[in-house]
Amino acid sequence: MQIFVKGLTGKTTTLEVEPSDTIENVKAKIQDKTGLPPDQQRLIFAGKQLEDGRTLSDYNIQKESTLHIVWR
């Protein structure tokens, strides 16, 4: 499925993911596209910070959802 990651600059990155992907895995995909290391990424969805060990489905993140990224 496709999801979007929007940064503070307003730039949006598209990712191809599975609902079973962990947040850690998603951060690795973001690094592949942007070069930003996972330890500098904070992902937010529906006002919650996403924890590395959880999956996208744990947070009810579905296709075409938009996550927000904040740099540490």
Rank of each mutant, 00 (worst) to 15 (best):
T14M: 12
L8K: 10
E18Y: 13
G35P: 02
P38F: 13
F4K: 06
K29A: 07
V70L: 12
T9A: 13
W71A: 14
L67W: 01
V70D: 07
G35Q: 04
Y59K: 00
I30F: 08
N60I: 03
S65V: 06
P37E: 07
Q40H: 06
G10M: 08
P38A: 15
V70C: 06
L8A: 10
D39F: 10
L43R: 00
I30C: 02
L67S: 00
N60Q: 09
T66K: 05
I61C: 01
T34W: 14
Q2R: 15
Q62E: 13
Q41R: 03
A46H: 15
S57Q: 12
E64L: 12
E64F: 13
K29D: 02
T12F: 12
V5L: 10
L15M: 05
E64G: 14
P38W: 13
Q62C: 05
V5K: 01
E24I: 10
Y59E: 03
L56G: 00
L56W: 01
S57R: 10
G47T: 04
I69R: 02
S20N: 13
L56V: 08
V17G: 01
G53K: 13
R72H: 13
G35W: 03
V17D: 00
G47W: 05
A46F: 09
L8W: 12
N60F: 08
I61R: 00
I30D: 00
G10A: 09
K6H: 10
Q41Y: 15
T14Q: 09
A28S: 10
S20H: 10
S57F: 09
I30E: 00
I61L: 04
E24P: 02
I69F: 08
R42T: 15
T13A: 08
Q40C: 07
T66M: 09
I69L: 15
K33C: 05
F45T: 02
I23G: 01
G47P: 01
L36F: 12
D21I: 04
I3W: 01
G10R: 02
E64I: 03
L43G: 00
V26Q: 00
G47Y: 05
R54E: 04
R72P: 15
K48Y: 10
F4E: 03
V70H: 11
L8M: 11
Q2T: 11
G35M: 04
A28Y: 12
D39P: 07
L36P: 03
T9Y: 14
A28R: 13
T55C: 05
Q31Y: 15
N25G: 10
R72F: 14
T14H: 05
N25F: 10
D21Q: 04
T55S: 07
N25I: 15
K11P: 15
K63W: 06
Q31P: 02
V17H: 02
K6C: 06
G53D: 12
D39S: 13
T66H: 15
V17C: 05
L56Q: 00
S57G: 11
Q2S: 09
D32Y: 13
G35E: 03
D32C: 06
T34M: 11
G7D: 15
N60G: 12
K33I: 13
R54P: 04
V5M: 04
M1S: 02
K63Q: 15
P38G: 10
L36N: 04
Q41V: 15
T9I: 10
P38Y: 11
I69Y: 05
T55D: 03
L8H: 10
K63G: 12
R54F: 14
P38K: 14
L43A: 02
D39Y: 12
T9E: 12
I44Y: 14
N25R: 15
G35C: 04
W71C: 07
E16F: 11
Q41C: 08
L15G: 00
D21R: 01
K63A: 15
N25W: 09
S65F: 07
R54Q: 08
N60H: 11
K29V: 04
F4N: 05
S65C: 05
D58A: 06
E51F: 06
S57K: 11
D21S: 07
K29I: 07
G7K: 04
R42P: 02
S65H: 07
L67Q: 00
D21F: 07
S57D: 09
K63I: 06
V26I: 13
E16I: 12
T34L: 14
P19L: 10
E64K: 07
K33P: 03
I30W: 05
L50Q: 01
F4Q: 05
S65Y: 07
D52S: 06
T66S: 05
F4S: 04
H68A: 07
F4T: 05
E18W: 12
P38I: 15
W71D: 08
E64C: 07
I61N: 00
T66I: 14
L56F: 02
D58V: 03
E64S: 09
Y59H: 03
E16K: 09
V70Y: 11
T22R: 07
T14P: 09
E51S: 06
Q40L: 10
K48Q: 14
V17I: 04
P37C: 06
F45I: 03
Q49F: 14
T9H: 15
W71L: 15
K29H: 05
G35N: 05
K11F: 14
Q2N: 10
D32T: 12
T14E: 09
L56D: 00
E51Q: 07
K27L: 07
